[in-house]
Amino acid sequence: MQPMLATAAPPPGRPPAGPGWAHEVKWDGVRALVTVHDGTWHVTARTGRDTTVAYPELAPLAAVPALAGGTVLDGEVVLLADGRPSFTALADRMHVRDARRAAALAAARPVALVVFDVLRHDGQDLTGAPFARRREVLDDVAPDLPGTVHVSPLYDDGAALWDATAQQGLEGVVSKRVASPYRPGVRSPDWVKAPHRHVRTALVAGWRPESTGTGRLGAVLLVAPDASGALRYLGRAGSGLGGPVGRDLDGRLRHAPAVRCAVADPVPAVDARGTVWVEPDVAVDVRYLTRTPSGRLRQPVVLGARTDADVDPWESR
């Protein structure tokens, strides 16, 4: 099963108002579906990939009697940095495949699971039930959850939550129609995301080493498909490539097939100079300030590679 996805809030990008909505914090983490049944537990990424080994902190879920009859939880794996959830801080965790390395990382910087929905409980499919009912079920099991798992609080006032999350440096707000069913794998207007900072997932079409001669990764060239499937140019990003994010991407890109993919837009010579073109198979999350009239990203910062997310379509703004 794939998780339900949210659509972007229409201009001016604020949470919707009205009694038919519930609002919660938009957590800066990695989406996860967690299945618990008869003493076993499994974590699945958005793509359907099994990521259980990466998060040993969530193993106590298997021992919760209230979940043993067959429960599927939807939530976000988060890791705190400076007191706030940070996707960048998760760079060392989300791609781990070795149980011993995962255990060592968990001991040093444990993750938590913030749960915001329940799709199945006691073997009963809840996806057709309204969101308000699913949250009642989730609230019923909340007292039994282990310390590494928390239920995301709900708020009635989206505007107040928007202001509070901005003041606290959080990512934004997600609003959900209280009468809406859960639609697996669908990006639905029943869920609306309103981020304070623009973040999108893009593909890497090429990379450049640092100009200082260190050989380290210095910049990546980003593209995204438009409605026709053609790849459109988003620009060059050099910020955010230090530390584990840069090392992870460097390893992925140096082993990527070297090929000049067809980009529908002309790539500026200053960006193309010295670029190693690759098959656009590596996806990254990018934070940016605004878009130019031609659709390029202003002040892009690479947050990390993604293997659990769809690439956001190209738009002019």
Rank of each mutant, 00 (worst) to 15 (best):
residue 61 L to F: 08
residue 18 G to F: 01
residue 106 A to D: 00
residue 193 K to E: 00
residue 141 V to P: 04
residue 143 P to M: 03
residue 88 T to D: 10
residue 225 P to L: 03
residue 190 D to P: 00
residue 114 V to A: 09
residue 53 V to D: 09
residue 16 P to K: 14
residue 266 P to I: 02
residue 45 A to T: 14
residue 261 C to S: 14
residue 158 G to K: 09
residue 53 V to H: 01
residue 139 D to V: 09
residue 200 R to C: 11
residue 23 H to S: 07
residue 182 Y to A: 12
residue 285 D to C: 07
residue 8 A to M: 14
residue 256 A to D: 03
residue 272 A to C: 07
residue 299 Q to Y: 12
residue 217 L to P: 13
residue 303 L to W: 06
residue 27 W to C: 00
residue 265 D to H: 03
residue 197 R to F: 11
residue 125 D to H: 12
residue 191 W to E: 00
residue 104 A to K: 12
residue 143 P to V: 01
residue 125 D to M: 15
residue 22 A to I: 11
residue 206 G to V: 05
residue 79 L to F: 00
residue 2 Q to C: 00
residue 254 R to E: 13
residue 302 V to D: 08
residue 316 S to W: 14
residue 265 D to V: 00
residue 221 L to K: 07
residue 242 G to F: 05
residue 147 G to E: 13
residue 253 L to R: 04
residue 10 P to Q: 04
residue 32 A to Y: 06
residue 54 A to P: 08
residue 137 V to F: 09
residue 146 P to L: 03
residue 184 P to I: 13
residue 230 A to M: 09
residue 251 G to A: 09
residue 300 P to L: 10
residue 136 E to I: 04
residue 112 A to N: 03
residue 147 G to D: 14
residue 254 R to V: 15
residue 1 M to D: 02
residue 252 R to E: 02
residue 285 D to I: 00
residue 288 Y to D: 10
residue 245 V to H: 10
residue 91 A to E: 14
residue 207 W to F: 14
residue 87 F to L: 15
residue 211 S to D: 12
residue 75 G to P: 08
residue 77 V to P: 11
residue 117 D to I: 12
residue 231 L to C: 06
residue 51 T to N: 09
residue 145 L to F: 06
residue 120 R to S: 08
residue 21 W to A: 04
residue 30 V to D: 02
residue 303 L to I: 07
residue 246 G to W: 05
residue 104 A to N: 10
residue 50 D to G: 07
residue 264 A to V: 00
residue 107 A to H: 11
residue 271 D to G: 01
residue 172 G to T: 06
residue 173 V to Q: 11
residue 234 L to N: 03
residue 140 D to P: 00
residue 121 H to F: 08
residue 79 L to M: 07
residue 48 G to K: 12
residue 296 R to E: 13
residue 202 A to F: 08
residue 114 V to N: 11
residue 105 L to H: 12
residue 257 P to D: 01
residue 122 D to S: 09
residue 269 A to Y: 02
residue 205 A to E: 11
residue 16 P to F: 12
residue 36 V to L: 08
residue 118 V to W: 04
residue 236 R to Y: 02
residue 193 K to N: 02
residue 118 V to N: 10
residue 242 G to K: 08
residue 41 W to Y: 11
residue 137 V to G: 03
residue 239 S to Q: 14
residue 60 P to I: 12
residue 208 R to D: 05
residue 215 G to L: 05
residue 258 A to P: 11
residue 27 W to V: 10
residue 119 L to K: 07
residue 261 C to V: 12
residue 244 P to K: 02
residue 154 L to Y: 01
residue 149 V to D: 05
residue 112 A to Q: 08
residue 77 V to T: 05
residue 43 V to D: 01
